[in-house]
Write a protein that binds this DNA or RNA. Structure first.
Lengths: 335, 335
DNA sequence: ACATCATATCGAACCGGTTCGGTAAATGAT
DNA sequence: ATCATTTACCGAACCGGTTCGATATGATGT
C-alpha cells in the first residue's frame, strides 16, 4: 500500500501539505499542487478511508435501516438513497431490523460506533424512551415512513390517514358497509394513522364499524394471513377488506383464493402500497401507492444536506409529507 | 468517548494490558482481568471499531455484492448471509451493482479500501481480465450464483443446466415442440448454462430448435418484456415459453395478458426462480426453484471460515452445487 | 542453589490519515 | 523604508486501537 508519506516524499513536501492538497487544493501553490498530483498519479495512491475516518471522527458511510428490505416499498427507497449517496461519495451500509425494535437499536449503536456520517431510518421502535434515544443520538438521522413523536428529527413520509381515507371512501361509494380492516402493529405510526383514516372516514359517513372486523395483521404476511382467515371464516364476513399494507393485503387475497372466494365477486379487496408484478396478479388490486422514489430522494437530500453543513445540521427538524396516489384495479366491486 | 486509555488508567494497568485482556483474556492474570473488566463496566467503554480496523488492517465488515437486490432470489440469500454474519460479529455492507460490471468493479475496490473482511459476490463482470482481477483480489471472496472461470474462488450455486433441462423435458412431455426461450445476458455464467440445458435437452430429444425462438432478455423485466413481445407477435409463435429467470418469465406472462393470450390455454409458460407472492399470481407458474436460503448459508459459512483462519484462507477453492427443485404450477398444458 | 522457562505486564512503535500553531517569504499599505 | 498581513508550507500532536520485544517475577528441574 502506498501511503500519504510515500506521496509526500516523492513530491518533496511534507505530509501535511499533501493532506492539504487533497482536501483544499486552493490552499497550496500551483506548482506544488502539480508535483503532488503527479506523485499521486505515479504511485497510484488511494486515500485510506479508515484512517481518514479515525482522524476525522466521521466516515463517509451512510446507514440505511428498515424492516424488511424485501418489501418493494423499502427496496425502492433504498435504491434511491443509495443512488444519491454514491453520487456524493458516500457508501451505504444497509441493515435490516426485521421489524424488531431491540435489534434495530443495537444496529443503530453499531452504526454509530462505525462513526457513520448519517442514518436514514424507518423506525420500528416506539414509545417515549425510544424517541429520546433517537433524539439524543449524535449522528444525523432522517426518519422516513415511520414518524416518532419526540424524536425531533427530519421526517419524510406520506399522508397516511389519507391512504385509507381514499380506500374507505372508494368502498363506501361502491355500497360496502361491512368493511374488514387488517391493521398494522398498533403503536406504529403508519399503522395508527392508517387505522385512524379508516375509522374517521367511516364515522364521517355515519357508518358504524363492527369492532370485530378490525384486526391486527402486524404488517406481515403470516399475520395478515391469520387475520384474513379469521375475517373470512365468519358467517357474517365482511363484503370488503382493506389491507393496511401490501403484505396483509396480498395475504387476504391469498386466503380468498385458498377458501374459494372470488375477488371481487364475493369479497372486495383494497390495500395500501404496491408490490412488484402487481400487474400480473389477478385481479388487479385496487390500491393507494406511495411515491417511494420521491420519498427516497427527499430523505437522501435532507440527510446529505445535514451531513454537509453544520448550519443545516442545526436546523430544526422538518416534516415532508407526500400525497399518495389512488390506483384503481379490479379487486373492488359495487355491492 | 471513553477510550482504552481511560480504562487502563482506572484499572491501574497499561493500555497494552487492556488490549490483551480484550483479545486474549486467558493471557492476563485473573485479578488484573477482574479489575479491567470492572473498569470497562464502570466507564461503559466500547471498543472503537474504526481504530481497531486501522490497527489490525482488517475490519469486521462483510460485503455483499449482487445485481438487483429487489429480486427475491438475491434478497433471500442476503438475508441468510446477514443473519450468519451478525451471529459471528460481522456487519454486512450491501452494494447493488445493478448488473453493471464497471460499477461492480468500482464497488469492490471501495470495499477493499474499507479493509473489509470478506466479500460475497454474485459477479456480473465477465471475461478473463475480470477473472484475473478477482483472482488477485487480496480480500477473501466467495462467489455465488455466477461462477467465473479463472477467478479461482469458492463458488456456491445451483446446477444451472439442470434447471432448464427439467423445464424443457416437462414441456416436451406435454407435447410442445416449438418452445421459445428467453435467455439471460450471453456470457453470464448462469445464462449460458441455462441456455445450454435447453439446447442439449432439445437435441437429446431429437427436436430441432428454431433459432429465432431463442432470444436474449437480459434477465431484466424490460428486456424480457420486449423479447416476449417479439416472440408472441409472430404468426408462428411458440406454443410454450421458458423464461431463464423470474424477471423474464413474469414479463412473458405480462405480455400474454396484455395481448389477450390465455396462459396456459394459448401459450404455456415455465421459468427459473420463484418470486414473492407467486401463489397469488394466476396461473400458478410452473418453475424450477433454487434453495436460496441454503445457498446463502453455504456462502456465509465458507466465507466466514476463510476469514477466520489462515489455513482455511489458503485452501484451494471449492464448488458447492445444489440441485434445484421442480415446482409444478398450472401455467403449462398438454398440447 | 542455579540455570531454565513460562507467565504477567509494560513501553514504544505503528496503522494512515487530519489539524493546528508556527515560521518564513511574499505581498500590500502607508 | 517599515510594518502589517497574507500565502505557502512544515512539524508535531492526535485519533484509538494492536503488536512485538523487553523486563520482572515466580515456578520448575536437577
Amino acid at each position: 500500500m502506498t501511503t500519504i508519506r510515500d506521496v509526500a516524499r516523492l513530491a518533496g513536501v511534507s505530509i501535511s501539505t499533501v493532506s492539504l492538497a487533497l482536501n483544499s487544493p486552493k490552499r497550496v501553490g500551483a506548482e506544488t499542487l502539480d508535483r503532488i498530483q503527479q506523485a499521486i498519479k505515479s504511485t497510484g495512491y488511494r486515500i485510506d478511508p479508515v484512517a481518514q475516518t479515525l482522524a476525522r471522527g466521521r466516515s463517509s458511510l451512510i446507514g440505511f435501516v428498515s424492516a424488511n428490505l424485501g418489501n418493494m416499498f423499502f427496496g425502492d427507497i433504498r435504491r434511491e438513497i443509495e443512488h444519491q449517496a454514491l453520487d456524493h461519495g458516500y457508501f451505504v451500509l444497509i441493515a435490516d431490523s426485521s421489524g424488531r425494535a431491540d435489534l434495530e437499536r443495537a444496529l443503530l449503536e453499531r452504526l454509530e460506533a462505525q462513526k457513520i456520517a448519517g442514518i436514514a431510518l424507518a423506525a420500528n421502535g416506539r414509545g417515549e424512551e425510544y424517541a429520546t434515544f433517537l433524539r439524543d443520538f449524535k449522528t444525523p438521522i432522517v426518519m422516513f415512513d415511520q414518524k416518532l413523536e419526540g424524536a425531533e428529527r427530519d421526517f419524510v413520509g406520506s399522508d397516511n390517514p389519507l391512504t385509507t381515507t381514499i380506500l374507505t371512501e372508494h368502498l363506501l361509494q361502491l355500497g360496502h358497509r361491512r368493511i374488514g380492516f387488517i391493521s398494522g402493529p398498533s403503536g406504529l405510526h403508519t399503522a395508527d394513522e392508517r387505522l385512524k383514516g379508516f375509522i374517521n372516514t367511516m364515522a364521517g359517513a355515519g357508518v358504524d364499524i363492527d369492532p370485530s372486523l378490525v384486526v391486527e395483521g402486524g404488517y406481515t404476511r403470516t399475520g395478515g394471513h391469520a387475520q384474513a382467515m379469521r375475517l373470512l371464516t365468519r358467517r357474517d364476513r365482511p363484503t370488503a377488506i382493506i389491507g393496511a399494507n401490501n403484505m396483509t393485503g396480498l395475504a387476504a387475497l391469498q386466503v380468498m383464493q385458498e377458501m374459494g372466494f372470488r375477488c371481487p365477486d364475493d369479497v372486495s379487496l383494497a390495500m395500501v402500497d404496491d408490490v412488484p408484478w402487481s400487474n400480473v396478479i389477478t385481479p388487479r388490486i385496487t390500491m393507494v401507492v406511495q411515491d417511494a422514489q420521491k420519498l427516497g430522494e427527499l430523505a437522501a437530500q435532507r440527510l446529505l444536506a445535514r451531513i454537509a453543513s453544520p448550519e443545516a445540521a442545526a436546523a430544526p427538524p422538518q416534516d415532508f409529507i407526500l400525497t399518495p396516489k389512488f390506483v384503481r384495479g379490479e379487486s373492488t366491486k359495487r355491492l
